[in-house]
Nucleic acid binder design. Structure first.
Length: 773
RNA sequence: UCGGGGAUCGUCUAAUGGCAGGACGCCAGUUUCUGGAUCUGGCUAUCAAGGUUCGAAUCCUUGUCCCCGAGCCA
């Protein structure tokens, strides 16, 4: 029960890739990196990335570098560099000696640029920004080549040197890669490498006036650091092609070849995660700063009282995948509670005090009680002293003049227990101007402790009026009213006006007065709190509510989102008149239109061979496929059978290679089809042989013999195998007989694993008979 | 419109041709000096349609929907 946050890493597709790379020897130990740009504070989304990258390094005995991607001097500041390091350390990760800056590589990057120019792979373009934009083309239209594209190497070298020397104004020239302006990917259309920026850099000062672009600097930085797995978010997937291009072109000057992998960035509902918008919140003073407890920044979460362990647990819980998703804020809250429940000592604090006088308690007397720091189920020792006096405060909301049904708290004549103390009964309600101002109660002096035998349904928190300490308590709600702030409209309109509620007149137990700022508590029945690391002082205690307790009594009255007027129903532009992508079917038709042979074969396949419309279409979309099919039919004249094999199995294999590159020969496929057709081998065995033919080539018959796949005629062997499998899985047999019939597949699978040559159809039949007997 | 990436319980995520599993959430009960925590039980999913296969979330085909991309930002 002690450490609920297991933090045992789940697998994910990136770890699968690393496992495979390790197994194949592509890399010995993984080297990852976390590459923030120092232009803002780290947030929840970064936490996921940090946990991923540093987590891999930790679990594989690898290394994770911290590298600042500081290639844009106009946006980056040292303040951010420091804050980022502080936040990563706080989260619990350590880059050891591996702290890097892209700006450390500026000289090397320049050298590589010169190398590219010499190779004729880069040129200085003197077009204006506007010309560049126009010439880039669009999604549908190719770009046009710059009129500066064919400058000589010498001229490029000269110009680039003078760019560096500061001879030109900002924007006068850029260095571009020379790739292909007609590329389908806009990012490959002579990608920009360097721009002129006469700006002061936070680290290199005024040493440079040309700065590399991300697309150029990032892959090279990875390569220079021998990063093995460069993990980034999905929106960079399009950049991978250029990433590979630069690394390949600069290979001679690089110690390694890194690879990029992309995962889906974290989104959390009711939370805005874009750095740009977060900066706006800060700049417009809509929040108290980057560390405002309502911010999703690590600094804000820390100040709010969220623990690093909770964040790590959360990162683990949300997983790593490639599908865009929006995570419930409730999951984060769960992780926070699940950590703090075991670590935050219980104290009592009254937010809205209502005075209670214990009429049968002696005036001027204080009874010292012992209160447990944790409830018994947490299993942690520790107590603290608590003073009970004649006058005390309870929570105003814990009293109801006319209690609703099911109300377990105080009401006229009702009894309730003061936590860690006695049971009291409300005898009299004192009102002034229709307001309840005081409750006069009597306490049962024999009701202390569980041993008294007296039980009441309600237990409420309280603080001695004489001994309690005034304090300020800040309650937070989500900063935004809408699930996806900024998605449908300007986020300013979606700010939650009630995101901060200050209780300036709260009263807390005196024991926590000397505790250091940032101490965590559970204020009983209210939630988890943390003394504010900025504003709380000994003279004036200030607490932030990190998260409330789960509450199965107070139902949410109004869903805050409901308050928001529906966004003006702006229909998505041409959602209905989307022309539809050019389908593969269309492409096949296009190919046939150019090739009369295919066209006539289409007709022949349908009419003479009697193939279905669909198969005939599929087989005539590409000359090589059609040839393959014809050749196979020539060897084994069963067109429908061959068509099935080609359509369902061969087509898959030619997705990323040409049919002519296949090791599988048409004749071999034909022979295989015949073996299956004639019942010599089962279709399952056929698939196995097919896989071998694809991987290694050869003849079907030879593989059948080598793998021992000839169908077993001996039913005795099969029956014995079935018995063995059933005996080995009594639990499954029981479940099957109880009605879980789809376990049949499990049994067939077991038998096939045991006896590869078994006929699955027969196996299934025998199995069914045996199990249903 | 072109290119890239996706689609599994309400949410997040597993299952790599063989038991659709876990977590959050929700509901009911248990228990409790926190209407907390615990424990027990329950809830709900393979985008659609065809095909291949003894067997498909997984392979083939077609279709639908969603996200990203035309900064001298990262």
């Amino acid at each position: 029960m002690e450490s609920p946050t297991a933090e045992a890493p789940k697998g994910n597709f990136i770890r699968d890739i690393i496992d495979a790379d390790l197994a194949s020897g592509r890399c010995k130990t993984p080297v990852t990196r976390f590459p923030p740009e120092p232009n803002g504070y780290l947030h929840l989304g970064h936490a996921k990335s940090i946990c991923l990258n540093f987590g891999i390094a930790r679990d594989y005995q690898g290394v994770c570098h911290l590298r600042f991607d500081d290639t844009n001097p106009t946006k980056e500041e040292t303040e951010y560099v420091e804050a980022i390091q502080r936040d990563i350390r706080w989260l619990g990760f350590d880059w050891r000696e591996n702290l890097f800056f892209a700006s450390d590589y500026f000289e090397k990057l320049y050298e590589i640029a010169v190398h590219l120019i010499r190779k004729g792979k880069a040129f200085v373009d003197s077009s204006t920004a506007e010309e560049l934009r126009e010439q880039r083309g669009s999604f549908t239209a190719p770009g046009v080549e710059s009129r500066f594209r064919e400058r000589s190497v010498e001229e490029n070298l000269d110009l680039f040197a003078r760019m560096r020397a500061g001879e030109f104004e900002d924007g006068a020239h850029v260095l571009r890669a020379k790739i292909d302006m007609a590329s389908k990917s806009i990012l490959m259309r002579d990608t920009l490498l360097y721009r002129i920026r006469h700006a002061h850099h936070h680290r290199t000062g005024d040493a440079w006036c040309i700065y590399p672009m991300y697309d150029y600097a990032h892959p090279l930085s990875d390569a220079l650091e021998s990063i093995t797995h460069s993990i980034c978010t999905l929106e960079f997937a399009d950049h991978r092609e250029f990433y590979d291009w630069v690394v390949a072109e600069a290979q001679e000057l690089l110690p390694s070849t890194p690879h990029q992998y992309e995962f889906a960035r974290l989104n959390v509902d009711y939370t805005m995660m874009s750095k740009r918008n977060l900066l706006t919140l800060v700049e417009e003073k809509l929040v108290a700063g980057w560390d405002d407890p309502r911010m999703p920044t690590l600094a804000g979460l820390r100040r709010r009282g969220v623990t690093p362990a909770a964040l790590r647990d959360f990162a683990e819980m949300v997983g790593v995948a490639k599908a865009n998703s929006v995570v419930d804020l409730g999951k984060l809250e769960y992780c926070i509670r699940n950590d703090l429940n075991f670590t935050a000592p219980r104290r009592m604090c009254v937010l809205e005090p209502l005075k209670v006088v214990l009429t049968n308690f002696p005036e001027g007397h204080a009874e010292t009680l012992e209160a447990a720091d944790f409830p018994p189920d947490v299993g942690k020792p520790g107590t603290h002293a608590l003073s009970l006096t004649r006058e005390l405060y309870i929570e105003r909301t814990d009293f109801e003049r006319a209690p609703p049904p099911g109300f377990h708290r105080l009401s006229p004549g009702a009894e309730v227990r003061l936590a860690s103390a006695y049971i009291i009964r409300c005898d009299e309600v004192v009102e002034r101007d229709g307001q309840v101002v005081e409750l006069r109660c009597t306490y049962d002096a024999d009701s202390k402790g569980g041993a008294s035998g007296r039980k009441v349904k309600g237990v409420i928190h309280w603080v001695s009026a004489e001994r309690g300490v005034p304090c300020e308590v800040r309650l937070y709600d989500r900063l935004f009213l809408s699930e996806a702030p900024g998605a449908e409209r300007d986020f300013h309109e979606e700010l939650n006006p009630a995101s901060l509620a200050v209780h300036a007149g709260a009263i807390v137990e005196p024991v926590l007065v000397g505790d250091p700022a940032g101490s965590h508590y559970q204020f009983t029945r209210l939630g988890y709190f943390c003394s504010d690391i900025v504003d709380s002082t000994a003279a004036r205690l200030v607490f932030n509510r990190t998260v409330s307790l789960r509450d199965s009594w107070t139902k949410p009255v109004v869903e805050p989102a409901a308050v928001l007027a529906p966004a003006s129903a702006e229909p998505k532009p041409d959602a209905d008149k989307r022309p539809g992508k050019k389908s593969a079917g269309q492409r096949r038709a296009d190919v046939r239109a150019e090739d009369p042979t295919l066209l006539s074969r289409l007709d022949r396949y349908r009419t003479v061979l009697g193939l279905s419309e669909e198969d005939a279409d599929l087989l005539t979309g590409e000359r090589q496929i059609s040839d393959f099919f014809d050749e196979a039919c020539g060897v084994y004249a069963k067109p429908e059978t061959i068509a099935k094999w080609v359509v369902n199995d061969v087509l898959r294999e030619v997705k990323d290679q040409a049919a002519s590159a296949l090791r599988l020969r048409p004749a071999a496929l034909a022979a295989l089809a015949r073996l299956v057709d004639e019942g010599a081998i089962s279709s399952a065995a056929g698939k196995a042989v097919f896989a071998k033919l694809i991987a290694e080539g050869g003849e079907a018959q030879a593989w059948v013999e080598r793998l021992g796949l000839l169908k077993v005629e001996d039913q005795g062997a099969l029956a014995a195998c079935i018995e063995k499998v059933l005996a080995g899985s009594p639990e499954q047999v029981r479940k099957y007989r109880e009605g879980k019939k789809n376990l049949l597949g499990f049994f067939v699978g077991q038998v096939m694993k045991e006896l590869v040559s078994a006929d699955p159809a027969l196996t299934r039949e025998l199995l069914t008979k045996r199990l249903d007997a």
